[in-house]
Design a protein around this nucleic acid. Structure first.
Length: 427
DNA sequence: TCTGGGGTCCTAGGACCC
DNA sequence: TCTGGGGTCCTAGGACCC
């Protein structure tokens, strides 16, 4: 009988930062979001200090310093590379693996003769730690949602040593001690809606009336309840699917007031999104651009504008996308405001091979080889080696990443340096 | 002064068609 | 006083995830 296992990397970004800095073992570590805005990853020691997930960094900066917490800007090149090592290893250990996020994977696992699933999970956890240096927790259940519940216990309850098999446990007792808004798929909104009906635990959700669930929480809520009952509604999706939308948006390092700078930023983000678009051999039919001021600011009015642009025909050309986006941005722009962010979402994606020429529109045949050359050059020499003039040169609006660690594993210039000592220990 | 970024799915309601 | 019905497609908005 095949079960679902959830393998979840513990405090993933913080663990990645520690990998090449062993002196940080046992010390509190936090990692910041883009723009050094929020705290998005914490080592156990940092959690122990009471640092909340998502807390704004500027409010904690002094406290972190006083506690000797190591602080890092996010380094996605590093995390992405470590993630792919962990996932590649999992695929070596089990044939059916769904990479669910940068730090989580679902696996199908089957009991092996002479070994419990808990023992098997313990072995897997140890292999991942030895081969990649990343600590993981493993939860096992008869559905994905139950595996998620098990994973939560595996991570929190030290006595379990990082592995919990819910299939051999008293499921109702476990679910009775599990808050409903911690269940995968139930967020704070639905949690409140359920609480108003007196449903506060996963067990109560499991036993809830189907018609009421269908009506109030939609088909997804009903599915979640079924999964808690041990009836699988969500399959393992082990072949990667191409994305349905591609977004790029970032906060500025400082407020931006000039339309010219907003345009540069938007063109830059469009180039980044379009690189991903071409990497999956797709074209976009539409794009949405968005422009917002800081919603936390108490001075000045908050404004956020969005505009969807539908193209005459799908494209993968950065130039075409930029040409359409910039006039629309000018339309959204209101002078005198301090903007915090612009962004773009490419959607209505179709495979390159679906291209249908528009009767009234002649496509520029040079675009495809041009973009291919551009991608080759930038992938070899760095992201902004060749770019559109519209994206700007100095980019004064760019976000801050003051505490970024080197790209230890993906850049020859930033490889870690190892100093070996002799047997006497004198070096 | 300073509060992330990138995704997915579902539903309701309008437009449109026959 | 009376004003069809059923189906599909699209979009905006809401909810969730990491």
């Amino acid at each position: 009988m095949s079960m679902f296992a959830l393998v979840d990397c513990n405090n993933f970004y913080a663990s990645c930062e520690r990998l090449f800095k062993p002196r940080l073992m046992g010390r509190p570590v936090v990692v910041l979001s883009n723009n050094d805005g929020c705290i998005i990853a914490r080592s156990n020691e940092a959690k122990g200090l009471g640092i909340a997930m998502g807390a704004p960094y500027f409010k904690y900066e002094k406290f972190l310093q006083s506690q000797g917490v190591a602080v890092f800007s996010s380094n996605y090149a590093l995390y992405g590379d470590i993630s792919s090592r962990v996932m590649a290893l999992l695929k070596q250990l089990e044939p059916e693996v769904e990479v669910y996020s940068i730090d989580e994977a679902f696996l199908h696992v089957t009991a092996i003769a002479g070994m419990t699933l808990t023992e098997y999970g313990g072995q897997m956890k140890e292999t991942v730690r030895r081969w990649t240096g990343i600590p993981v927790s493993i939860g096992i259940g008869s559905t994905k949602t139950l595996a998620k519940v098990a994973g939560r216990f595996a991570k929190k309850d030290e006595a379990l040593q990082g592995v919990f098999d819910l299939t051999g446990a008293d499921v109702d007792a476990i679910l009775g001690a599990f808050a409903v808004d911690e269940v995968w798929g139930i967020g704070c909104r639905l949690g409140e809606r359920l609480a108003r009906r007196g449903i506060t635990t996963a067990l109560a959700l499991k036993n809830c009336d189907d018609d009421w669930l269908r009506k109030n929480l939609s088909i997804t809520g009903l599915r979640t309840a079924m999964e808690l009952r041990g009836i699988p509604c969500l399959e393992l999706e082990d072949c990667p699917v191409s994305k349905k939308s591609i977004a790029s948006s970032k906060s500025f390092g400082r407020p931006v007031e000039l339309l010219a700078e907003l345009k540069e930023a938007l063109a830059t983000y469009i180039e980044q999104a379009a690189v991903k678009l071409r990497a999956q051999h797709a074209m976009a039919n539409s794009l949405e651009i968005a422009l917002t001021t800081n919603r936390f600011s108490r001075t000045g009015t908050h404004y956020s504008g969005r505009k969807v642009i539908t193209l005459a025909e799908p494209t993968a050309s950065s130039s075409v996308l930029i040409q359409h986006a910039l006039p629309a941005l000018a339309g959204l722009y209101k002078p005198g405001l301090r903007y915090q962010k612009v962004g773009v979402v490419l959607f209505g994606l179709v495979p390159e091979s679906y291209y249908q020429p528009n009767l009234f529109f002649r496509r520029d045949g040079r675009s495809k080889p041009l973009m291919a050359a551009l991608d080759r050059i930038n992938s070899k020499w760095g992201r902004c080696t060749i770019q559109h003039g519209a994206a700007g040169l100095t980019k004064p609006w760019q976000n801050r990443q003051l505490k970024k660690s080197p790209a230890f594993t993906t850049s020859w210039q930033e490889l870690p340096v190892v100093k070996a000592s002799g047997p006497s220990g004198r070096g």
